[in-house]
C-alpha cells in the first residue's frame, strides 16, 4: 500500500478524516517555509501538499497568488521545492508529501528528469491543476515508472463519464473540488455525500475534499462525509499574518484546531 493510502487508512482506523495541509513552498522564504511545513506535520497534518510557486497561477485565488509572488521573489523554484522535500525527509518527516502546482515548470525540467528527482527527494505524489485527465497521461506515465502517483481533480462540473476515467490512474486519493471557483473561495453549498460516495466508488480511492474549508467547523462538516479534508488558503494566510519567525507557530495552532475537528460521528 502506498504511503498516502496508509495515511488515509490510519485516519479511518481512528474514526476520523485525514487532514491534508496545503502550504506554498518558499513563502515567505525557502528556509522558513520548510520550518512551517515541519511544524504543520508535528501539529497533526496527515498529508502535506507542498505548493510549487508559479508565475501564472490561474486556478488560485488571492491568498495563494500572493504567497506564490512572495515565494518567487524569495527565489523559490521547482528544484528548490524538491530540495525542501529531501530536507524534510532528512529531518525525519515521514508523512506523505504531494507536490502541488502547475505543469510548465515540470515540463521545462522534463517529465522524466522531474520524476527521477522527485523520487530521490521523497515525493509521494504529484497534483498539477492544469493537467486534466485528458492531458495527465504525459506526466502520469513517467511518474508511475518512478513509483510516484498522480492526484486527479474532480469538480462539481465533472460528468459521470469523466469521473469514471479517474480510476485508470490508480490514484493514491482523488481531490474533489467542492465548489466552482478558485482556491480560497468562500464556502459554498454543503458537500453532497452521494457525490463523494460516487467518486470513491468510481475511482477505488479515498476522496479528499477541498476549497472553501477555512475553520475547524468547516472541517468538521466535511469530515463527516469525506475521507480527507484539504485546507490551503486559511493556512497560507496564517503564514503571512505576522512576523515570519512566528509563522510556524501560527500555522501549527490552526493545524491543531483543524486536526481536532475531524472525528467522524460514530
Amino acid at each position: 500500500m502506498s504511503a498516502v493510502r496508509e495515511a488515509f487508512a490510519r485516519a479511518a482506523g481512528e474514526r476520523r478524516a485525514a487532514l491534508v495541509a496545503y502550504l506554498t513552498f518558499g513563502d515567505p522564504d525557502p528556509a522558513t517555509s520548510i520550518e512551517v511545513v515541519h511544524a504543520a506535520v508535528l501539529a497533526g497534518a496527515d498529508v502535506v501538499e507542498l505548493g510549487v510557486p508559479f508565475s501564472d497561477p490561474s486556478a488560485d485565488g488571492p491568498s495563494i497568488q500572493r504567497a506564490m509572488e512572495r515565494a518567487l521573489e524569495a527565489g523559490a523554484t521547482l528544484a528548490g521545492a524538491l530540495d525542501a522535500v529531501a530536507e524534510l525527509r532528512r529531518r525525519g518527516v515521514g508523512v506523505p508529501i504531494v507536490l502541488f502546482g502547475y505543469y510548465n515548470p515540470i515540463f521545462v525540467m522534463g517529465a522524466e528528469a522531474f520524476a527521477a528527482r522527485a523520487r530521490a527527494a521523497g515525493v509521494d505524489a504529484v497534483l498539477t491543476v492544469d493537467l486534466p485527465i485528458d492531458e495527465l497521461g504525459e506526466l502520469a506515465a513517467p511518474l508511475a515508472a518512478a513509483s510516484i502517483g498522480v492526484i486527479p481533480l474532480v469538480a462539481p462540473t465533472s460528468t459521470p463519464e469523466r469521473i469514471a476515467r479517474v480510476g485508470a490512474f490508480a490514484p493514491p486519493f482523488v481531490y474533489y473540488i467542492s465548489l466552482t471557483g478558485v482556491t480560497g473561495a468562500r464556502a459554498g453549498a454543503p458537500v453532497d455525500p452521494a457525490r463523494v460516495d460516487a467518486i470513491r466508488a468510481a475511482s477505488g480511492a479515498p476522496v479528499a475534499v477541498g476549497f472553501g474549508i477555512r475553520t475547524p467547523a468547516d472541517a468538521a462538516r466535511v469530515a463527516a462525509v469525506a475521507d480527507g479534508v484539504v485546507v490551503g488558503s486559511a493556512l497560507v494566510e496564517r503564514v503571512a499574518a505576522g512576523a515570519p519567525a512566528d509563522a510556524p507557530d501560527r500555522v501549527a495552532a490552526l493545524v491543531r484546531d483543524l486536526a481536532g475537528a475531524l472525528a467522524r460521528p460514530a
Binding site: 490561474s58 505543469y103 492544469d130 493537467l131 486534466p132 485527465i133 481533480l153 474532480v154 465533472s158 460528468t159
Partner: peptide
C-alpha cells in the same frame, strides 16, 4: 491544459 472545472 486547464482546470478540471472548466473541462465540461
Amino acid at each position: 491544459y486547464v482546470a478540471e472545472t472548466l473541462m465540461p
